[in-house]
Amino acid sequence: MYWYSIKSMISRELLIAVRYPAEVLNPLVFFLMVVTLFPLGISPEPQFLAQIAGPVIWIAALLAMMLSLDSLFKNDFDDGSLEQLLISPSPIVMLVLVKVITHWFTTVFPIILLAPLLAMMMQLPDEGYRALILTLLLGTPVISMIGGIGAALTVGLHRGGVLLSLIVLPLFIPILVFSASAIEAANMIMQYDGQLAMLAAMLVLALVTTPFATAFALKISINN
C-alpha cells in the first residue's frame, strides 16, 4: 500500500525538479563559481592547484549542498503538503528517507557529475579522479541525510538558511576529513580503502538513524 505513496512522492519530486530547474541549476552554478575563486584567490600554479584540488572541490560541493538543503522541506512546508505527509497513514520515516534520497538525486548528483570537469580545471592528478568520485558518492548522501535533520528543524523559521548551516556544518567534519584524505592518498598512489570503508560505515549509520531523527524533527517543527 505505501509503495504507492513512495512512488507518487518520487514522481512528484522529479516533476518539481523538471518544472523548476533553477532549484537544480543554481547550486550547480554556485559550485562552479566557488571552485573558480580558489585559483584566482590563491594561485593558478598547476602543482599547487593539484594539491588543493580535492579538498577545494569537496568544500565547494559541501557549500553548494547547503544551499539546496535549505529547500528540502521548505516548499512542502509552505504549501501545507508536509503536514499532509505527517498525518498520512504511510510510515513517515520511510517517506522522509525517500524524499531525502530523491532530493539528493536531483540536486547533488548533478554536482557529482560536474566534479570531474572541475577536477580537470583544478589539475587534479589522474590518480585522484576515482577517489574523488567515490568519496563524493559515499559522502554526499550522508551530508544530505544529516543536513535533512537540520533542514527539518529549521523548516518553519524565517531566518532558516544561515541557521541551518550553523547547526549542521560542524557535523560534516568527519566526512570532509576522510574524503580529503582519501583523495590525497590516491594522489600519492597509496591505498585509500580504509577511508572509503569509514565513509561507507558512516553512510550505513546515517541511513539507519537519520530518517528517524528527521521525521521526529519534522513533527517538532510542525507543532511550533
Binding site: 544529516i146 535533520i149 537540520g150 528543524l153 547547526i167 560542524p170 557535523l171 567534519i173 568527519p174 576529513v177 576522510f178 569509514m198 558512516m202 538513524t209 531523527a213 521526529f216 524533527a217 517538532i220 517543527s221 511550533n224
Partner: peptide, 20 residues
C-alpha cells in the same frame, strides 16, 4: 528542537573526535 540537535551532536562527538 534543541534536545534533538544536542542528541545528534552527542552521537557525532565521538566520530568527530576520532576523525580529528
Amino acid at each position: 528542537a534543541c534536545a534533538l540537535l544536542s542528541l545528534v551532536g552527542l552521537v557525532n562527538i565521538p566520530i568527530i573526535k576520532y576523525s580529528v
